[in-house]
Design a binder for these strands. Sequence first.
RNA 1: GCCGCGGUGGCGAAACUGGUAUACGCGCAGGACUUAAAAUCCUGUGGUCGUCAAUCCGACCGUGUGGGUCCGAUUCCCACCCGCGGCACCA
Length: 953
Amino acid sequence: MIVKKLDPLSFEKKWQKIWEEEGIYQPDLAGAGKPFYNLMMFPYPSAEGLHVGNMYAFTGVDIFGRFMRMKGYDVFEPIGLDGFGIHSENYALKIGKHPAEQAKVSEKNFYRQLKSIGNGFAWKNRLETYDPDYYRWTQWLFVQMFKNGLAYKKKSPVNFCPSCKTVLSDEQVIDGMCERCKSEVVKKQMEQWFFRITRYAGKLLQNTFKQSFKWSDKVKIGQRNWIGKKEGININYPIIAGPVSQESQTTVDEIICFTTRPDTNFGATFVVIAPEHPFAERLLSDNSLKLPKLLKSHIFDYVATSRKKTSQERIAEGREKTGVFTGFYCVNQLTGYKMPLYISDFVLMEFGTGAVVGVPGHDKRDFEFAKKFNLPVVRVVIGSDNDNSKIEKIGQVQEDEGKMVNSGFLDGLDIHKATEKMMDFLTEKGWGKRVTTYRLRDWCISRQRYWGAPIPMIYCQKCASEEKSWFSAEEAEQNKIRNTKHETRNKFKKQNSNDQNNFGFRISDFGFPDRMAGWFPVPEKDLPVLLPDLSDWKPEGTGKGPLAKVQSFVTAKCPHCGGEAQRETDVCDTFLDSSWYFLRYPSIKIQKSKFKSQNFNSKLKSEKNEITNNLPWDKEITKKWLPVSMYIGGAEHTVLHLLYSRFITMAMHDFGFLDFEEPYRQFYAHGLIIAEGAKMSKSKGNIIGPDTYINKYGADALRTYLMFLGPFDMGGDFRDTGILGMHKFLKRVWKLVGDFIAKSDKTTSGVAGCSKAKAMTLPTVKESEKLTRFMHRAIKEVTEDLEKLRYNTAIAHIMEYVNEISNFEFRISNLPKEVFQNLLLVLAPFAPHMTEELWFRLQQGVKTTSGAAGCSGAKAMTLPMVKKPENTSIHLHPWPSFDPKYLVEDEVVIAVQVNGKLRETVKISNLKSQISKEAEKEAYKSEKVQKYLAGKTIRKVIFVPGKILNFVV
RNA sequence: GCCGCGGUGGCGAAACUGGUAUACGCGCAGGACUUAAAAUCCUGUGGUCGUCAAUCCGACCGUGUGGGUCCGAUUCCCACCCGCGGCACCA
């Protein structure tokens, strides 16, 4: 085979095959001495296949893996597909294909593409989340969560699209409208399963401050903000019927308000509760409150309309405040002031206690509300502008730092000291209790959909009516105590809470689940609960998932009493599938599936199977490989996915299944590749697939180009002009190394027949030394850049090195072999195929027909196809080291400045450059320096050894 | 509004702890080779001005804007403008 120039297609597939056959990227999982778990976020397989954005991420991960492998680590770089879930189902919906069928098509296409990019994947350990051998363990995980009191079911509002008749996730709701059909999304109350992630809020936050937690600040801050810890106080306000008459002074109830600013409490003039607040409900249901009929109907109307409001309507209203007076007052025990009690939908039941104390002088929303309802505004803080006038306009509302006024014992204090003092005071009096709240909500795990792991729970009506629970009474009590720790809302749980009221919700919706009577987990030996093959799998929006229609699926034996019971028909959120996959990868063993003949699930199966203990992971292997050494993924997942997988790992640790509580030693967020200034997306139609580029320039050129685009954590804009440039660079390397191989072959004359041939001269000693120094510096710089994932500058340094070698144009055959070996070695992570091909030829001393490849009209170099002997891959070769002695230059250039302005550079010996006097002496010799110093007095000389000499005149 | 990231030539971008701004590449211009083109190679390439020209010489200006600290600032501090991403009536 004769190859005139670089033709990647002629060898890329070949090497991919050889690598896989020889298993050079398949570490010995049980016996590895220096394990390094190099993990990338697995993709969900869209039908369009990989786009260059995916490839950018995977290549960046792979380069790091290859680098670590060459540094001597046993690198484990697994790959899989996150193919279960709403994304995949929606796509199947769109093209009208069954999700399982589509999954197989996508899988094939994805794996083909993933192979074509030349990553060092451990293919034997791949996994798919829709594989029954995988999701049986996802279900197992659910069961563990339930048994440990971390999974519960309660009614909760969900996004619902009346047109698509489906429940939507928050991400699918854009500005209150359905992502797909653009119709208004409404909130609907539905029974949902939750994971109690809030119980771990404190620990999830706390761990981010640990020294061992080596994530970038950016991501750490993202996690912390999402958890959203707030220290504040819950203040009690007794409710009375009226401010005037003696009789009406009796306390009928109390309202608890959460606030982070109790310092402003002397300025509180009203209290507002959410329409869903239990007291609002009591106003309507409790006749003993003796509410006038008219008022009651006003309240009813307000509560009912605000409950019906769509998010669209809320947005349309903007900040315009609405509300209704309840007829009741709250007593501010601090001042005795009787604050009117209102209901308004700007107060959210989900946050804090669902009740707010209004301080209109120091909160814009409160001010807006006060203006609307003509409530008094009191100033209690003076800001840095010393304005102490009456607050009459929204612009005057003082929300910033300042000093207290009109606040009794707080006067004169700054707001932070006042806050502390007030909290102490209220606590002491028993009027308030310090609390910590979190923004984090419990994780809604259930989906009324088809394409997911069925939630492995069974509900028995009979057991439920007999109050039988999986939990013992003590356990349930324990759970309750633990649950109340971070929550305050259960305060409102009342005895009669199970009575339905006019609005179709129960007070207990905001309280805590009981013992989950009647609910039992599917026994572990019966897992997986296989997803039935359904032709009628489309979502209907009845509030139940498609599985509910399948009688044979729904009917089950009660694990407790053995009677007829019903299976849960919701499936798990995709985030659960992806929350633990990294724990599974290293423990996958190749076996025959036992689900082979059972049903259509066997179609989804590959030949692997679970290991034979009763855990989804092998203890020894997990000990060796986890936590993950390096995790690289997109910034869009830095909040939810990372938080969920941290939570699951922490929980598994606490249940005794793992010995570590944080899953990832290091996390790195890569940037995003955009196209034409916008994120690549189907709707924008700007998806760029890698296939055409790989077929034209090869995977190496695309990989290297993508990495050269800019810093890896910044992403960039894809342009196809750039890839041509990278192709040219690789061609230069190909030619350079090819020339060396050809010309150093003594059997042919390297310059024969070359029109431009110059006399063969040997490089001078000085030139050789210079090149050697350059080589060591290049190795040093590439090494350091790779350690920090600075791929763009690493490539720049390789280019500089290539330029330096190119200077020897006609004498390259006289250069030492290591010059080229090291070039290939440092380039290998970026361009694995080409370097492997050249490495192979270089090691073999491949015979060539003509060495004149460097000349115009050159005759070809022959590249015979010979099977590579084992374990001589460049990718298993040790990374080159550099010798610091070559990094020291004999002569250095010193910049001479006058008053900080560069005027001259002088070249002096390295030794002299370290000494100020010597450098000065040298500088004075320069005419230019003399010119600038003429007639001036030198006041000061600043000297930075080896760098700068600055005269201050 | 809050949080995070960014703003440097025609373009993608370098500059690591304050120390010669624009490395490396793309593009562009000119040249070599060629009948010609492609490919390849070489050279140049921040701006303005130096009362004609100047590839060789010199001056000044230049890292979003305006200030500050310093012998010296892309880098540190203060105030602001613009772009991107996330959250948002969060008490």
